[in-house]
Nucleic acid binder design. Sequence first.
DNA 1: CCAGTTTTTCCCACTTTTTCCCACTTCTCT
DNA 2: AGAGAAGTGGGAAAAAGTGGGAAAAACTGG
Lengths: 151, 151
Amino acid sequence: MFRGVNRLNLDVKGRLAIPTRYRERLRESCASELVITVDTDRCLLIYPLPEWQVIEQKLMRLPSYNKAARRLQRLLVGHATEVEMDGQGRVLLPPPLREFAGLTKHAVMIGQGNKFELWDEQRWNEQRDGWLEEADLSELDLPADLETLSI
Amino acid sequence: MFRGVNRLNLDVKGRLAIPTRYRERLRESCASELVITVDTDRCLLIYPLPEWQVIEQKLMRLPSYNKAARRLQRLLVGHATEVEMDGQGRVLLPPPLREFAGLTKHAVMIGQGNKFELWDEQRWNEQRDGWLEEADLSELDLPADLETLSI
DNA sequence: CCAGTTTTTCCCACTTTTTCCCACTTCTCT
DNA sequence: AGAGAAGTGGGAAAAAGTGGGAAAAACTGG
């Protein structure tokens, strides 16, 4: 499981240094082959290639004439780009994806189980503070599991 | 079960000395491996690694396209950082978490069963006094169990 | 299809940050 | 008052971050 928050800087060439603590695992689990794609919340998602392939299959099995499904396919599969870590543990972010997520220099990489999310730092902070203020989760639709969740 | 309130000081490097009375138990129960994450009330949560893993699993099983679930995943799993006590029983608080909770020097560590809460001392005092003034709990929504609670 | 030019890739080397541990100070209990 | 334990600061070694440059690849126009 990937977890945790990491502050990162993109360098002038648009490269992203993967935090050291994840590198070893990524080299083992996917021979440093990653897939980067977009998320509906204007951040990027970074998957180890094998994990991505599972997701991609699930997505492409959805019915083509369901609007929501078709959108997800276009967004996620459509933007998915394979990248590989270089010897120093960096990956080159494709310019279209970098622009999509508004990434310039200061970025935040968030562990989310089987994947990472990559946000522009400022956008991340704003979003997060927004979520905290809409404090009361109970106003949202909760899945049954969540109502009994004890942390 | 962890309980009790402890006043602590962060040192200049942002390190937190775990109170001695918990150290032995933490060394045994989790080989000094802790996970620190955030809470919606702007404090930090400190779990022994095994305790945390249970929660993390529950969270990541929730559906990705449920808003409330996704938020909790991003907040809790997204900020969860593994740390280890050093030889002197201290842990280094990652700067993003320290900033999130507004921790500077004076902190309060609160035992809460399977975890600890870490608050900036001033914020803790204000919150607590606030709760006391909202005296009447019966104005809040109580889960069924609480309505029959006898203490 | 080839040569010149630009872009991309890959790796080296320097700088900065982090980590780990030692030693001093302060507090507490006898 | 002294001894032991806990708290606190600091520094050196190691690791990670960062920029740049040469070689390879790709593109373009003749």
